[in-house]
Every structure is written in structure tokens, then in C-alpha cells.
Nucleic acid binder design. Structure first.
Length: 822
RNA sequence: GCGGGAGUGGCGGAAUUGGCAGACGCGCUAGACUUAGGAUCUAGUGGCAAACGCCGUGGGGGUUCAAGUCCCUUCUCCCGCACCA
């Protein structure tokens, strides 16, 4: 009988679907929420998807077999720009394109045999879903967490929309790679900065997250402690407020520098005769791209603004500059220049001949030796009046206290993270539920009027303002407050808003009254295991944490972190590079499934590398996994006549040969269990099963093998394979156990600790750390006897002859090391 | 520059607590079966050596009876952030 994967896979997929085998249990018992990041329906699955979902499926199936009530859902992150671009290109509608893709990809997922509960499927572009995305926007709005403001925002000219800071990767659009420019626009924001500290603090709770992701998030949030200090400016009333992490160096401040776009710069330069120079400088900078502008390589440049600021601690007059290395977005957009202790200020001071005053010196070098670069470490204060001789940290504290008393400054914590810009000037997204009334102003859409339905008859050009703005029936509406003529907001929400709460909707996907029921969410959440690509380390994972914290604070749920454990899977590579159409190194999952079946595809992808590491695709490796499944197939089907025996046996009645196999069986059960449960090392779990198969073949070919023991091995083998290769396991299970039960409903096997105890063991004998012999001894032999036996070994004796034994080290059950010298 | 990770046969990778380096798979070599083999099975497969053996986990040094694993030092590669005051 041939391994007909196609017939087997189709048969069981149909059977599971009919029997609703993967339906989620009700809210009772020991729960386990396994979640893979829901995909954008781009058209077809790629190998990255297959990897993601194969990993998740092993976890979900394993937990189910271990008696957990498992939630393992799937859905679609189905709003977004590609739908719009594809619609324009192929003259279709984003709605049609998206739902076609969903249909295809759903079919592909079913072909892979992933154990999703399809009754819980959701799509973020469906009105039943985005109604609640809009509802959440209003919740944020009503609690002061969503607001509109005018500011310099990131603009992607190619995507014709604004972008969140998180979507700008070294000056380029995260999606299309175009150079991002700045635009002064009025936009909607979520107040994520209010949660900066909480997002940082609670990362300590995330023990099940990779350090890498936590570090990336903390760097992104970018907390710095310091002080804001006010500097008076001669001749004008306005003060320059700076933020510094080094208030201890204030006696070394010799100049001030403002970002060129800083509003105060214009005011300061006014009527000084330096206006023309300043304006020219600003013009030049505006022409530069964001990347050039913020490059570390760029030479520090600036222009004098014609006025001086007063140092609040010593009254020193300091020239004020506008400088290209000062960023308006960070801190207050202004700094005090301390050339002696900041390399950037040092470079600037050298260029413009500004004074360099040393105020911190390394301990032990208090006399100073002149400077050729800035000294940025800790040390002892000099040239700082009454603070001289103090450790710079003590001085820092004293100086801030002094400034606070004088009302010139205060302790402050600044974050790098900015509020989350969520409006997009694009069509295929959830409309922002706000109405503008000439009488009443900005009015939120009342809950009863949700959803604000995205109209389908809208002209798409991919250029200019939001496409919704051209739809008169959408734009024109009545004010919910006064009933007068009013206009709708025409921007849609960033798709990351949709994906910031989908894991909650999965706990209660059909709820018509609420986004989700608190009880249900509290039962299922947090997600026990979340799995996805590391590319979401900042964007999605940070936003989802933010949402969860807001909902927690507003009493909608009782947990404040969404994802207990996070597994960031590696990429799938071919010829050392990420698979991509442009490189022409794409292997399509469809082809592999057609040629070898889903079980082979899954097995290879799980076997080729540990999940968090990048995986190098190998056609020959796939072939090898296919051969392995065939090998199992033959092993099981060739011995069908043996499976009538009952598989019970008594360990002490078995022969040594039987006991050896029983050892392998139990050892494999333990190894596979530990590898899945504790380490997600599916690759080593599978290799353990391979060894077991080798052992079963050898055992069966021996004279006098015990069919009862063999059958036990076969049964365990099939069950152990179930999470990895569910179809073949199911087919074989029905041959081994003809009782109509599904292998996926079986209890995960236990191992018998007694079977793992060997009577005889082999231990290694080393002489001076080099392996020289092996001896077989009874497992319970006491240490002294073991040592003596080792020394009596013939081979060992030939090595130690004529030498003095200085020491014998014993590692119980493993080795003996004899230390000798001449 | 800062942060994170990695470096082990021809290749993917194993070695979980300092205790036999190279499990398992791929590839390769030889053989068996066969009209045939890109099926299957058997044996072999880190390097050097005829062999006893010696060497071997990026390089150098150290701790230890014992180091891929710990310490110091250094090189290379990948990823993330980057004029963050």
C-alpha cells in the first residue's frame, strides 16, 4: 500500500471539518490560548506563513492532547493599502480583491490542516468588526486618549498618506521604501505617550518574551531622566527651555543651540541683522531629506542668532545659535551647549571657535591635561563653584535642587516615543467616526449610529487627498447634536488600530452588543503563546500592549498585558536570502503541498531549524522528510496484522531486547514532550522520533521480538507524530486502533520513569581527560567499586602502567577520570 | 557609536546543569536487490595518519581532573536603533 498523501489529507480534512474536531470548548477548565499573528490577505500564503502556522499548530494540538481547553483562531488583517493599489492596477475593487484573497488563503490554510476553529474567523474589513474598531476609537476619544492636532508629520509621497513614527524606518516608508518627507498637517493621534512609563515598567512582567524584543521596545520608548532648565534671553521676554540629562555640566555651558525650525529662533534673530543668514540656513536645511538631515555623518553647522542667553547658575552670557544637529522633535528642541562633555557640542564649538570649559574630570586626574575630545564619563567636579570636588552625580542633584528653588528648572523625565498618528488619507480602512458641524464643531458619531460604513462606490486614483472626500454621499451628513448640515471626517484609521485588539475579539467573535464580553476575555486572555515575525517587535506588539492597558484602566478587562509568551520566528531563506519575487528565490507552498503533501511541508519546516532561527530552504531536505514519512508509513502498514494484540505488558517479564526497545519508546516520549513544552525545539523532537523509527525497524527484524511491545511502540509513535504531521498520523491511527477515535483526541502519552532505569550502563573512562575506555557496569554499583572496576580495566591498566595515580574523579552514571603523572 | 544575536564537518543542525563534540537529517562513497533507479535495504562518512595515535567547536590567552559550554582578550557576520541633548 502506497503512502497516498493526497487522498489521506483530503479525507481527513473533510472528516475533521464535518465533525468540528477543532471547535473551541466553552469557557470552562484549564484554558490555553494559542495565537499566530493574523495575516494580511495579500493573495497567497508564503513560506513564512506556513512556518508561523505550523509552529502554532504544533503548540495548539499538543496542548489540546494534554487536556487543555484550547482557543486557536484565525482571521484576516484585511484593511490596508495593498488592496487599494491592487484595485487600481487590476481595475477591480479593494473589497472584491480582499475577499477573493481571503477565500484563497483560507482554502490554503485548510489544505495545510491547521487546527483552527473556523467558526471564530474574523476579518477586520468586515463592518461587524470595524464597527467595534470605531467604537474603541470613540472610547479613546471620550477618555481624552484620541485627539486631533496640527504638527509636522511623516508623509509618504508614494503611498500618498501620513505615517506613524513607527512606520518610518531610517527615513523611509516601512511599506514601499520611499523617502519620507515632512508635512505640516492636522491629524488624529492616540495618546500612547501617557502610557510610556507603564509600557516600560510592565515589560518586567514579560518573562516569556525574547530579550531582543523587550530591548527594542525600551529603546523605542526611550526614557531619559534629567532636568528642564530655563535660560533668560537678553532683550526679549521669552525664555529658552532646554532638556538635559547632564545638569551637572551646566557650569561648562558656553553656548545655546536651537533647532532651525524652533519657533523661538525667529523671535530671537529679529532685528539683530542676522536674519538673512538665518533664513538662508533654514532654507538650506529644509531642502535636505530626513535621512541626510539626521545622518551622524553630517557636519555640525549653525548660525549665530545675534543674541545671548544667561546661564542661571553663574550669569555667564552665552551666544545663541540655530544648529542643524538639534532636532525639534526631541526634548524641547533646544540645548545648552557643553563642549567639554558632549562630543557633538565639542565638534560644534571647535568649528565656531567657542569656549570649552572642563567641569568634570576623571577621578585621579583632577589637575587636568587639556582636552582633544569631549569627556562624557563620570568624574569629579571642577570649575563649578561650590560643587568643586564633588562626585558629578552628587553635584547633579545639588544643582537641580538649586535651580528648582530659584524657579529656573525642574527634574523631568522625557521619552523618545511620540503620540501615535492614526489617521490615513486612504480609502481601504475603518472610517474615523467623527463629524464636523459648523455650529457644534467636532462631534463624535453616537454609538447607535455605528458602524460608519465605508462606502463601496468610491473613485480610487491613488493620488491626492483621502478618496472618501470625493464621495458626496459619505461626506455630507447631519450633525448628531443639532441636526444641521455637517461633514464627516474623511480619513481612515491606520490598520494597526484594527490589529491592536483582534486577539480580544477572538474570545467573543460574534458578539453583536459589545466589542467583547469581559468574562470571556478574562477567561481566555492573556494569550498563552503568541507567535509571529520579529518585524512586529515594535509596531504591532507595542500598540497591542497600549490598547490592552487602556482597556484595563477603563475596566473593560482584568488583565493589562495581552501576550504572556512571545515566540518570534525566524525568516525562511533560500540561497541565503529572504524569499522574494524580485530575487526570484520563492518556493511556493502550493507546489510543495501538491508534490509532497501538507504533512511533508510542515515536517520539513519544523525540522530544518529551531523556530526562532532563520531557516534555509532545501529541496533535498524536503525530500528527506517525505522519505521519513514514507518510512513511517511502511513501518506501520507492513505490520497491520500485529495490531490486534493488546498493548499491555509487565516490564519485569520482558527480555533484555524488549526492555531496550521499551527504554527507547519511553525516552522518546519524554524527549518529545520536553522539547515541545519547554523549549519549542521541534527540530530535536522530530529527530528523536526518527531515532525511534530506526529502533522500531531494527527491533522488528530481530528474532523473537515481542508483538505487544512493538505495538505499544507503534501506537506511541503515531500519537507523537500527530502534532507535526496530523493527516498521516490520523490515517495510521485508524489502522492501529480501529475504534473510530481520532488520534487528535487522544491523551498525550506519559512515560514510565521505571522504564528509563537501566540495569547495565556504559560509562566512559578517561585518563587525564582523554577517553581511553568504556566499561559496562550494573547501574546501582557504588562509586568506590566503579572506580576500582575502571582501574582494573585492561585498556586502562596499559595506560597507567608505571605512572602514579594522583586522583580519580567520578561522575555518577557518566564517567571516571583517572589523573596520572609520571 | 549604542543595543541584541550568531560563529561547531561538504550542508541544515545536535550537545538542555562544565562530563564521550558532531545526535538526527541532507549530501557523498561502496555494496545488495533490480530490465531500470531519482525506490528500498546494508556498510561507511570531522581532518591528518598505513597504523599506535594526534589534531579539532572564528583567533589568542586563562580557570579546571575535565571547556563548544566559565573568565579575559580579539576578529568576523547578521539584526535593530542611531546627532535622543
Amino acid at each position: 500500500m502506497r503512502y497516498d498523501f493526497q487522498r489521506i489529507e483530503e479525507k481527513w480534512q473533510k472528516d475533521w471539518e464535518e465533525k468540528k474536531l477543532h471547535r473551541t470548548g466553552e469557557g470552562e477548565g484549564n484554558k490555553y490560548y494559542a495565537l499566530e499573528m493574523f495575516p494580511y490577505p495579500s493573495g497567497k500564503l508564503h513560506m513564512g506563513h506556513v512556518r508561523n502556522y505550523s509552529i502554532g499548530d504544533v503548540v495548539a494540538r499538543f496542548k489540546k492532547m494534554n487536556g487543555k481547553n484550547v482557543l486557536h483562531p484565525m482571521g484576516w488583517d484585511s484593511f490596508g493599502l495593498p488592496a487599494e493599489n491592487a484595485a487600481i492596477k487590476h481595475d477591480t475593487h479593494p473589497n472584491v480583491w480582499t475577499w477573493d484573497n481571503i477565500k484563497n488563503m483560507r482554502a490554503q490554510l485548510k489544505q495545510l490542516g491547521i487546527s483552527y476553529d473556523w467558526d471564530r474567523e474574523i476579518a477586520s474589513c468586515h463592518p461587524d468588526y470595524y464597527k467595534w474598531t470605531q467604537w474603541l476609537f470613540l472610547l479613546f476619544y471620550n477618555n481624552g486618549l484620541a485627539y486631533k492636532k496640527r504638527s509636522y508629520v511623516n508623509w509618504c509621497p508614494s503611498c500618498a498618506t501620513v505615517l506613524a513614527n513607527e512606520q518610518v524606518i531610517s527615513g523611509e516608508c516601512e511599506r514601499c521604501g520611499s523617502t519620507v518627507t515632512k508635512k505640516d498637517l492636522e491629524q488624529w493621534f492616540f495618546r500612547i505617550t501617557d502610557y510610556a512609563q507603564k509600557l516600560l515598567d510592565d515589560m518586567q512582567k514579560l518573562e516569556g518574551w525574547p530579550d531582543k524584543v523587550k530591548t527594542m521596545q525600551s529603546n523605542w520608548i526611550g526614557r531619559s531622566e534629567g532636568a528642564s532648565i530655563d535660560f533668560d534671553v537678553e532683550g526679549i521676554k521669552s525664555k529658552i527651555t532646554v532638556f538635559t540629562t547632564r545638569p551637572d555640566t551646566i557650569f561648562g555651558a558656553t553656548f545655546m543651540a536651537l533647532a532651525p525650525e524652533h519657533p523661538l529662533a525667529k523671535e530671537i534673530v529679529k532685528d539683530t541683522g542676522y536674519e538673512d543668514e538665518f533664513n538662508g540656513f533654514v532654507e538650506r536645511i529644509k531642502k535636505m531629506s530626513e535621512i541626510e538631515r539626521t545622518s551622524t555623518e553630517l557636519e555640525k553647522e549653525g548660525v549665530f542668532l545675534g543674541k545671548y542667553a544667561v546661564n542661571p547658575v553663574n550669569g555667564k552670557m552665552m551666544p545663541i545659535y540655530a544648529a542643524n544637529y538639534i532636532l525639534l522633535e526631541y526634548g524641547t528642541g533646544a540645548i545648552m551647549g557643553v563642549p567639554a562633555h558632549d562630543q557633538r557640542d565639542y565638534d560644534f564649538a571647535v568649528k565656531y571657535g567657542l569656549e570649552i570649559i572642563e567641569v568634570v574630570r576623571p577621578v585621579g586626574e583632577e589637575n587636568g591635561k587639556g582636552m582633544d575630545r569631549a569627556f562624557e564619563d563620570t568624574g569629579v567636579m571642577v570649575n563649578s563653584g561650590k560643587y568643586n570636588g564633588l562626585d558629578n552625580y552628587e553635584a547633579m542633584s545639588g544643582i537641580i535642587d538649586e535651580l528648582e528653588r530659584a524657579g529656573k528648572g525642574k527634574r523631568e523625565v522625557k521619552f523618545r516615543i511620540r503620540d501615535w498618528l492614526i489617521s490615513r488619507q486612504r480609502y481601504w480602512g475603518a472610517p474615523i467616526p467623527i463629524i464636523y458641524c459648523p455650529e457644534c464643531g467636532e462631534v463624535p458619531v453616537p454609538e447607535k449610529d455605528l458602524p460608519v460604513v465605508l462606502p463601496l462606490n468610491v473613485e480610487l486614483t491613488g493620488k491626492g487627498e483621502s478618496p472618501l472626500a470625493r464621495s458626496q454621499e459619505f461626506v455630507n451628513t447631519k450633525c448628531p447634536v443639532c441636526g444641521g448640515d455637517a461633514k464627516r471626517e474623511t480619513d481612515t484609521m491606520d490598520t494597526f488600530v484594527c490589529s491592536s485588539w483582534y486577539f480580544l475579539r477572538f474570545t467573543d467573535p460574534q458578539n453583536k452588543e459589545k466589542a467583547f464580553d469581559k468574562k470571556k476575555a478574562d477567561y481566555w486572555m492573556p494569550v498563552d503563546q503568541y507567535i509571529g515575525g520579529v518585524e512586529h517587535a515594535i509596531l504591532h506588539l507595542l500598540y497591542a500592549r497600549f490598547f490592552t492597558k487602556v482597556l484595563y484602566d477603563l475596566g473593560l478587562c482584568s488583565f493589562n498585558e495581552p501576550f504572556q509568551n512571545l515566540l518570534t520566528q525566524g525568516m525562511v531563506l533560500k540561497d541565503g536570502a529572504k524569499m522574494s519575487k524580485s530575487k526570484g528565490n520563492v518556493v511556493s507552498p502550493e507546489d510543495i503541498v501538491e508534490r509532497y503533501g501538507a504533512d511533508t511541508a510542515r515536517l520539513f519546516i519544523l525540522f530544518a531549524a529551531p523556530p526562532e532561527r532563520d531557516l534555509e530552504w532545501s529541496d533535498q531536505g524536503v525530500e528527506g522528510c517525505y522519505r521519513f514519512l514514507n518510512r513511517i508509513w511502511r513501518l506501520v502498514t507492513d505490520s497491520v496484522e500485529l495490531y490486534t494484540e493488546d498493548s499491555r505488558y509487565e516490564l519485569h517479564e520482558l527480555s533484555q531486547m524488549d526492555k531496550d526497545l521499551v527504554y527507547v519508546i519511553n525516552h522518546t516520549v519524554k524527549k518529545v514532550t520536553d522539547d515541545i513544552e519547554e523549549r519549542f525545539n521541534f527540530n530535536t523532537a522530530i529527530s528523536a522520533v526518527m531515532e525511534m523509527v530506526n529502533a522500531l525497524y531494527q527491533y522488528r527484524d530481530k528474532d523473537g521480538f515481542n508483538p505487544v511491545v512493538f505495538r505499544d511502540g507503534i501506537e506511541k509513535l503515531v500519537v507523537l507524530m500527530a502534532p507535526f504531521a496530523p493527516h498521516i498520523a490520523e490515517e495510521l491511527w485508524h489502522m492501529v486502533r480501529n475504534d473510530g477515535s481520532s488520534v487528535h483526541s487522544q491523551k498525550w502519552p506519559d512515560y514510565d520513569p521505571k522504564a528509563l532505569i537501566k540495569d547495565e550502563i556504559i560509562i566512559v573512562v578517561q585518563i587525564n581527560g582523554k577517553v581511553r575506555s568504556r566499561i559496562s557496569i550494573p547501574a546501582d554499583m557504588d562509586e568506590e567499586t566503579v572506580k576500582r572496576t575502571a582501574l582494573e580495566d585492561e585498556k586502562v591498566r596499559s595506560y597507567i602502567e608505571g605512572q602514579t595515580i594522583s586522583k580519580v574523579v567520578a561522575v555518577p552514571g557518566k564517567l571516571i577520570n583517572v589523573v596520572v603523572r609520571r
